[in-house]
Design a protein around this nucleic acid. Structure first.
Lengths: 333, 333
DNA sequence: TTGAAAGCGCTAACAT
DNA sequence: ATGTTAGCGCTTTCAA
């Protein structure tokens, strides 16, 4: 190591100085000499060698247990990225394509590379199988959970989100609220529906009186379902949608039928989708799914800024914009 | 190395066998013995040590030279990810937050880590300054370019995209086409506008007769601009939009005014945004911005599956869906 | 308060 | 043709 030579010390001392190794006492003068030599030579430690020696890599893997990177992943990565960077770690981005076998191989590879920690994430909230090997390193589940709950998980509190969205509509004075849900089989869909019914019940209404139709989270299902609602002649005063895309579909269908939003019908979305919910006209009232915050929380638990907990349920706040208002008529039309 | 001991050979032999090092002749018998010991012990080479020794890391960095990861990044990453994985490399995802100083530090860090190659990407296509250090390793620019063109770049052919979209409308019989552009200052905006005017000119029309208004790529600007168009009383038979979100805004405004799409007015988007263009009703005709393909091309050039070229202009194909049709009236209304 | 020496796990240059 | 030794750049005992 030429820095050591230039400073007239041993390589060990350089290491001590640069790493501020605790329990080491280097004289002020020597430290200065080393620092000077470092600056002179523009020396930068070889991180690969450091990592090899220390058995760490200053790297966190973000595992996307799904075929695609979608908006979810982008937002969650953004959150995780910030935190890990602040901590001096880089994010290794990998995808299993949704296959458990690939997940297994991938994690083995990641461990071979001395990856320090894992964020195991899914797109639609769901139960997953995490390879055993993940236990060998700090691992946190993002937007997914295992049956045995043997890893800490960060999850959105969908039930509360559904309940509060419904409550917001009730507070506005709505009594006839339809729910055009997302794909019925999904965890999030069920949780939101539970919240919806809870809120109705708590308000003294009979959930069975409300129209609930299952869509699939795509905009066209919101459009089609709303068309049906219009045709049926039993239009409610408010429509809750499985997500923002369905809400946009619903608004398109409403407008096409000459029905105004929110004057005639209020529309509530879900997700607060980036560059959609806030931009559409009328701007969509919705429930914010805070993927970025979730990613950040996961990373924080990993770098020990925050203690790890079994399940972190993240609040999804209602955001009231222009697509909801007090009802101006009684339902039915 | 216990594998070596178990097989009764030196560690080097194990390395030769496992890496099939060319120019090495290991007796069949020894090879078998080694392989057997490897299986027995479940031995996996330490990739960190390998990387350290070989000076490579089987890692490609995807540098997002912007504050956010958006859909662009997600799509491009998806493309790059596939290719790099097939090649056995992992994608290191980093962001400069748009700051050149941070880019500098980041690249230095990446080089310290023996990162094998860099993809330097921006969100809105633009000119960038790339730190000198990037020259020390294969680097490719994605959706951006340098003034000196000293790095190969992969870019969307926006001019052709704008031209072909316009041509598609002309082919349908439209003669009065308005263009609600994105942010006027952006490279993409200008290129598309050039394409628009070229196509008009080539069709014997005077581009100056067409209404061109500058929006900002947000849905609400499409909405507002279209409202103005409607109010002005000079509604064209077709509206080209800066992107799909603006097109959705435009459709919302049209519907609200009782104007049908595509019967009364055709609407053309741009981007073929995931989960939006194809799902909206009527499904949006648009121009596909193939970010995934671009990411893939960039990665392929990096892993040498494809020779590097100064500028790779990627074709943006027109996708005709339901929001465009032959005009049923002459413009003006 | 500092330095010498050993060695992390692997592979490229060397022996045999 | 087959196999071994030396050493990558760093950190960490331990001795001075």
């Amino acid at each position: 190591m030429d820095v050591a030579r230039l400073a007239g010390v041993s390589p060990a001392v350089v290491s001590f100085v640069l790493n501020q190794t605790p329990g080491q006492t280097i004289s002020h003068e020597t430290r200065e000499r080393v620092l000077h030599a470092v600056a002179e030579l523009g020396y930068r430690p070889n991180r690969a060698a450091q990592g090899f020696r220390r058995g760490t890599s200053a790297t966190i893997a973000f595992i996307n247990h799904d075929a695609d990177f979608g908006e979810f992943a982008a937002a969650a990565i953004k959150g995780a990225h910030e935190t890990s960077n602040r901590h001096g770690s880089l994010l290794l981005l990998v995808s299993t394509g949704g296959s458990n076998r690939q997940a297994e191989e991938l994690i083995a590879d990641l461990l071979d590379r001395q990856t320090d920690a894992l964020i195991f994430s899914a797109v639609g909230t769901k139960a997953v199988t995490v390879p055993e090997a993940a236990h060998r390193v700090p691992t946190i589940l993002l937007n997914c959970y295992t049956a045995k709950d043997d890893f800490p998980a960060v999850l959105p509190d969908e039930e509360r989100g559904g309940r509060e969205a419904t409550q917001a509509l009730l507070d506005l004075g709505h009594r006839e609220i339809a729910f055009l849900t997302g794909r019925a089989s999904q965890w999030a869909t069920k949780a939101r529906l539970r919240g919806f019914r809870d809120a109705l019940q708590a308000a003294g209404l009979n959930p069975a009186d409300s129209t609930v139709r299952a869509g699939n989270y795509h905009a066209d299902s919101g459009y089609d379902l709303t068309k049906e609602l219009v045709r049926s002649g039993a239009l409610p005063t408010a429509i809750m949608c499985g997500n923002d895309r369905m809400a946009v579909g619903a608004m398109l269908a409403l407008f096409e039928a000459g029905i105004r939003v929110p004057e005639d019908v209020s529309v509530m979305g879900y997700d607060d989708q980036f560059q959609l919910a806030a931009e559409v006209r009328p701007a969509l009232s919705t429930v914010r799914l805070p993927y970025d915050v979730m990613g950040q929380l996961a990373a924080e638990q990993l770098v020990d800024e925050v203690p790890r907990t079994r399940r972190t349920m993240v609040h999804c706040p209602v955001i009231l914009r222009a697509s909801t208002a007090a009802p101006s008529r009684t339902a039915g039309r």
